[in-house]
Design a protein around this nucleic acid. Structure first.
Lengths: 182, 182
DNA sequence: CTTTATTCGTAACACTTGTTATTTTACCCG
DNA sequence: CGGGTAAAATAACAAGTGTTACGAATAAAG
């Protein structure tokens, strides 16, 4: 009846996502994505209405990627927010382009920091509850302060203005939690 | 002998800077700058070798602008780093495009955070000395922590993930200083 | 096989970018 | 009042963008 599809929506999305990850969001143009996917630009516009729609799909995939990244990140601290923070900071260092897209860009479909962080598994809520159980009175305020601090380190890592090691960073975060608690 | 120059290098630079400030760095293209300056693209390439050179000039002007901004910012706190931080955060909120250019972009001629902050007047050094005189033992470490915190707030302001008032922010910074000190 | 529907590649359109060639304009000196 | 000279305007080039028109390839049904 009709020709069989050889380039799927998954091919396109995966390629665009990989390019965003490796070369940055703005380099994932129609022609470049097509070239990397080994096809013409035509299949892109068959499965996506336009590039904006593909961009949004890439953005959503980046959110999923961050969630997986966090889920797989080794848990080494019992202090609330520290593991979440360490994962976030490592993500900023190792996935600069994705970090920039998710947390620093101002695309129209941008989600809030909290939405992305808390995610489907309620990570933030879990951490706040952990803080409460650890005897923290104002766990919400603690989250805000810790997150400001964590976001600050992540942002500075991105621009090369922060160069402490992972071990040092973990110590710094734990120490900050203690500071904010007292 | 020759025609009199009607478009100066100052005209070009001021226009490009204003456009960067109002519409963002990437919108200051040759044709758009020329249009806003009321001339063709030709005078731009007479006074600048290429757009890259103009961009760098805009970047340097943005640094000066930030310095003036800081110098004029009202001094309301006696706690070290708080005034510097308040100015930095206000700058992020009120001059999003310039903040992005100076502190978040990765242009080739980018200066380090410390270089920009400390500036010609040695603002950071002055604050660190103030902290020492206020009895802070590890003033360098204090600067790092305070600056991480300040940079975190500034970055979140930019993306709309922070919405405390100036007064609240000042309280938060002062309180953080006390936390870090103990 | 032939038909038919759909996917894909080629090529084009309209636009924006930096940059440059060419022509026009205006000024000051003789 | 010219004439030479520098500045500015016009217009072009080459490259890159999103998007679309169109024709060729292909697979399954008749």
């Amino acid at each position: 009846m009709a020709r069989k599809e050889s380039i799927t929506i998954q091919n396109i999305l995966d390629t665009a996502f990989l390019m965003t990850r490796e070369e940055g969001f703005r380099n994932a143009t129609a022609r470049k994505v097509a070239a990397k996917a080994g096809c013409s630009t035509q299949p892109i516009f068959r499965v996506y209405k336009n590039m904006e729609e593909l961009s949004e799909a890439v953005y959503l995939k980046a959110i999923d990627f961050f969630r997986d990244y966090y889920d797989l990140y080794p848990c080494t601290s019992s202090v609330p927010f520290v593991n979440l923070g360490m994962a976030y900071i490592a993500f900023a260092r190792e996935e600069k382009n994705l970090f920039q897209l998710l947390f620093l860009s101002d695309v129209s479909y941008k989600k809030s920091l909290y939405e992305i962080l808390n995610g489907s598994s309620g990570n933030v809520v879990a951490e706040i509850n952990a803080a409460k159980e650890a005897g923290c009175k104002d766990a919400g305020g603690m989250f805000m302060k810790m997150w400001i601090f964590i976001h600050g380190i992540a942002g500075m890592s991105l621009t090369g203005d922060y160069d402490l090691s992972d071990v040092e960073t973990k110590g710094l975060l734990e120490q900050s939690y203690q500071s904010f608690a007292s």
